[in-house]
Design a protein around this nucleic acid. Structure first.
Lengths: 139, 139
DNA sequence: TCACAAATGCGTACTATTCGCATTTAAGTC
DNA sequence: GACTTAAATGCGAATAGTACGCATTTGTGA
């Protein structure tokens, strides 16, 4: 299993040059339990005393998404994408309609569900589920 | 029931001035069975021989969303929002990862599903589900 | 250590969307 | 139907997130 070793044992994607900036971006994502925007990541890197130009952060994120190490998500009613370290766990989020807080959902409605399509066939690769409502602070 | 009549019998939201542009936008959305972007709507209006500045289309859409006549959705991996006429039917979409075609799903996994949250309480108002994969032409 | 392909810094460009303001228009009142 | 006025539109310019181009720097295999 895993003969191709697309991702190395230390979590680094194979065939990807190690640079200060790339390590910073991945470290920030690994240390966060919530998805972060490119700007969040940029700020956290600065706060850690390192530095990486914002456009570089975007390029790194794009690469990491392509390599499967990072997951990119678009949260509705927010114009910016968020990124998280791929821990290979199936997760979904609930988003508060007032404060935009993100809450992790533990179960997935798609587990025992077979989507039906009108006429057309469609081969399902994955899904994206977002619950919206109000968190306990905003209720 | 419906004593407040937020939406009139002809489908027009109450207390909203009728203008050429607003009628054009709603007509385009009513005649489409797929969600459309603001730009799509703008083009279709031009094609119909009418006209409405793009910023006006955006303003109208924002208003109609607020009035509950139109639904705004953000489809992932697409940087633009799409809008559809609210037919008060529960629907979800499958999006082809190659050609971005949108296919309507007939059933909903959330029907018999109760979301669970770790510690925090969350009152669920609604949900957003997107299936991705390949349509029959792109398989 | 050297060479070179690849990554970054930095600025600029692009795209979807929003905003500001002068002009126009819908709709209630006389 | 004309008048009035608040609200909508045309139009351009601004904004924000993200992508791009190119000169310089850096990581890595030889």
């Amino acid at each position: 299993m895993n003969r191709l070793k697309k991702i190395k044992d230390d979590g680094w994607p194979a065939g990807v040059k190690k640079t200060k900036q790339r390590e910073s971006v991945l470290a920030v994502l690994k240390n966060s339990d919530k998805p972060l925007s490119a700007m969040d990541i940029y700020s956290k890197i600065e706060k850690n005393g390192s530095s990486a130009w914002l456009s570089t952060v975007y390029r790194i994120l794009e690469l990491m998404v392509k390599k499967g190490v990072v997951i990119k998500t678009n949260i509705m009613n927010s114009e910016m994408a968020v990124y998280e370290f791929n821990r290979f766990k199936h997760k979904h989020y609930a988003v508060c309609m007032r404060c935009n807080k993100i809450i992790i959902m533990d179960n997935c409605p798609m587990d025992k569900f077979i989507p039906q399509f009108k006429d057309e066939e469609f081969s399902v690769i994955g899904h994206n589920i977002e619950i919206f409502g109000f968190c306990k602070d905003c209720k």
